[in-house]
Design a protein around this nucleic acid. Structure first.
Lengths: 345, 345
DNA sequence: AATAGGGACTTTACCGGTTCAGAAAGCGCT
DNA sequence: AGCGCTTTCTGAACCGGTAAAGTCCCTATT
């Protein structure tokens, strides 16, 4: 407000210096036809000399596209800080946005309702050109809102959750099945899964897949517990799973993220259980974290950075008018490390 | 682009419905004097009925302030994904921005030069009302740029690095000294520190403070190694520190973040060393991560969320014209957990 | 020679607000 | 009645661009 003034150079100065009209400058900077090479050069030179670049604000107001995309993440701040997933995802998104000189408008929200309102006001206020929607749940209200607004978005979530929206997703069910089969192949008959937030769509899909796999493999024991993704919740879940007497407790646990797996590892150690001899642990998402524990965590690993990049690319597709589509991204693959082995008991 | 059209309602419709001019609507929405209560009410009612809110873009263009603040983070994406620090910091920033209905424009950059260019173009393009600058180094070029532009910013870093800019910072030197004193008080005479990126200003301040403390306490051994903050680097550093034969190796290690401390813990385990009996480990920044390991990590803990919030609050102060100032934030405090104890050797 | 067709620009009308110089109305006072 | 003051509200200019229509000139065609 009171900040010392900055000399603003506008399109008018550039036009004057190049000896043309504002319109000509606009044509040049939007690479539209109708200008001679010579004039074009003169304009660019003038702009360079003045250090001018078109004002995105004015451009937006005048009706051209907006070079900002929105991302609202709805999780308690406390949890977010720790989830490597989102930062990695964001960095993947950024890597693509940058190529298009596009920025990311990030907002942490506390509820889905708040997000719906935010997306709508972002869009109606022309603050963003499109949005990346994450954390879908069943009957997600964002689907209808976005359709009503005709707002370009990419939905990060399974097509069964994202309705008509263009989606980018991983085949979680397949991955869960693979995880369970792998543990069963090692000889485990009592397997548990420490899942994420129950409200989230992909959590319930994983839950269903786990049940299905357990039945198909005729496991002797199968447990599932929902958490909020935090390390504390993971620790708590692990502790309660492992307190059962030896013959009844699970010999392998699959986690829905890596933070909880790390916590689980610590709980096993604290209970005097050896990993992987007494219990095998399998993480999800596989950030760097899985490699720095002892033993290193086996994980269903997943190129989260690439996932974010693909989401951003797809969003650009939607913005430029590509029809709706479904973009599967590679299914997480099993990366065995030191935390999984045949049960010794 | 080709997205189905969204019916846009503008100030004109609101004015028409309330039976006043655009100007009146503007006055009402900016709580400026010159309107009767009755008219004001009529205008707000009309706006509510039409679901209208002023367009930030148009507002910005017309010269009022911008309700977006910028944050450019310069670290390789791979590392960012894992550093709990930034996500937590961002969530603290957001918590304050939200109260002011302000958004965060986030960008990951690859170099300081890129950041300087970005900040300048953000500011000149009126994309942001101000910026939060992080990761200061000695003779940081951003100081001069920002002064030249008269751009409101808050510098997250020690005043000795941030020149005339308003800063928010923690007294790192004091914290390092406290950490070393604590370990010395436990009886450790050979202490190492696994630091962060050497180019960063706060890293060199911590390095100097460590040297100073080691000398003052006449430690028998003091090591420091610089890393890139990654878990891998932390593991490597720890491994090389601990390979020395028993009498010569450090009995305590301080880390510059918690990721490296976790990695260090794993390395100790892998080398058959017990923590804290054979070696004590002390983490920094104390995210949730420190509590979920086994043993839980002692840490110099630090309210990173609050740090971010304070930075945002201070930025608002700068934007509204408060003079330059220096805002220290509480020094990290020692939180002893299970990873530190008197040396047994 | 008259006319059509382009190319190269310029003009002008917005986009959706803010702001500021008046205008109209109401009121108290001499 | 006439005058000055407020209070309340309007109209027009402006912010920095874009886009569509218009102007001018030069060449090719019939």
């Amino acid at each position: 407000m009171t900040a010392t003034p900055t000399p603003r150079v506008t399109i008018k100065e550039v036009a004057a210096r190049a000896g043309v009209s504002k319109g000509a400058v606009s044509l040049a900077f939007n690479q539209k036809p109708g200008l001679s090479e010579a004039t074009r050069d003169r304009i660019f030179r003038a702009a360079r000399e003045l250090g001018w670049a078109p004002s995105p604000t004015a451009r937006t107001l005048a009706g051209s596209r907006v070079d900002v995309v929105g991302l609202a993440i709805c999780r308690p701040a406390r949890l977010l800080g720790l989830e490597p997933f989102y930062m990695e995802f964001v960095s993947g998104v950024e890597s693509v946005l940058t190529e298009h000189s596009c920025s990311l408008l990030l907002r942490l929200v506390r509820s889905l309702e708040e997000e719906v309102g935010l997306q709508e006001s972002w869009w109606r206020g022309r603050q963003i050109g499109g949005s990346i929607l994450v954390d879908f749940r069943a009957d997600d209200p964002r689907v209808a809102t976005v359709e009503r607004l005709g707002m370009p978005v990419v939905a990060v979530g399974h097509p069964s959750l994202t309705g008509s929206l263009t989606s980018v997703w991983t085949e979680d069910a397949t991955a869960v099945t693979e995880a369970v089969r792998y543990l069963a192949a090692l000889g485990h008959r009592r397997i548990a899964r420490v899942g994420g937030a129950a409200t989230l769509g992909h959590t319930s899909m994983r839950t269903a897949a786990f049940d299905e796999a357990a039945r198909a493999l005729e496991l002797a024991g199968a447990w599932q517990v929902a958490t909020d993704y935090s390390g504390e919740a993971g620790a708590r879940a692990t502790r309660s799973l492992l307190t059962a007497a030896a013959p009844d407790r699970p010999t392998a646990i699959v986690y829905d993220n890596d933070i909880m797996a790390v916590a689980g590892l610590a709980v096993a150690a604290e209970m005097g259980l050896s990993v992987p001899d007494d219990v095998s642990l399998l993480a999800w998402d596989d950030s760097q974290l899985c490699r720095i524990t002892h033993p290193p965590l086996s994980a269903m690993s997943h190129d989260v950075h690439g996932f974010g990049a693909e989401a951003a690319r797809t969003l650009f597709g939607v913005i430029t008018g590509e029809g709706p589509g479904s973009h599967p991204v590679p299914t997480p693959v099993l990366t065995p490390r030191g935390s999984t082995a045949p049960p010794k008991v």
